[in-house]
Simulated assay, not measured.
Amino acid sequence: MNRTLTILLFGLLWVSCGQKLLEPPENLIPREKMAEILYHMALLDAIDNSHPQVLVENNIRVMPYLFDKYGVDSLQFVQSDLYYASVPEEYEKIYKAVEERLTRKRDSVSEAIRQGQSPAVDSLKTSQDQED
């Protein structure tokens, strides 16, 4: 009896995990673009936490700036984020890509500092417009 119940529960769990929780929205942001948005969001958030005056001086409001830069709106972003969160494998791929880019950026800034160069805020702002 216990073995049958265990097999039945395992089978039910396996089938239910394979089902989509949400259907993709019509205007789903592609995975690569979503990773770009989240990468730049993390960079701007770090700048906002460490040097908030830089964003104020440059008149940058993070989310409106990102929505304009990537041609998305807040609803599209939220729906896409919610969809990707419902598909853990996809969400993990996005966040791993973001983490790898942030690590490369951190390492390049650390190397510049080690070499006695002062990474300018302007270069960080410019790097947002370039592919890493």
Rank of each mutant, 00 (worst) to 15 (best):
N2M: 09
L5K: 13
L8M: 08
G11D: 08
G11K: 11
G18F: 02
Q19P: 00
L21Y: 10
E23G: 05
L28K: 00
R31I: 15
E32W: 00
E32A: 13
K33T: 15
A35K: 00
L38D: 02
M41E: 12
D45Q: 15
A46P: 00
D48T: 06
D48K: 14
N49L: 10
N49E: 12
P52S: 00
V54D: 06
V56Q: 11
E57W: 04
N58S: 06
N59F: 08
N59L: 07
I60L: 01
V62L: 12
M63D: 07
Y65G: 02
L66M: 02
D68S: 10
S74D: 13
S74K: 13
S74G: 09
F77K: 03
V78L: 12
V78F: 09
S80N: 02
E90T: 06
E90G: 03
E92P: 00
K93H: 13
I94P: 00
I94H: 01
E99T: 14
E100K: 13
E100V: 13
R104S: 14
K105N: 09
D107H: 08
S108Y: 07
S110F: 08
A112F: 06
A112Y: 04
Q117W: 06
Q117Y: 11
S118M: 12
S118P: 00
V121I: 15
D122E: 13
D129V: 05
Q130N: 09
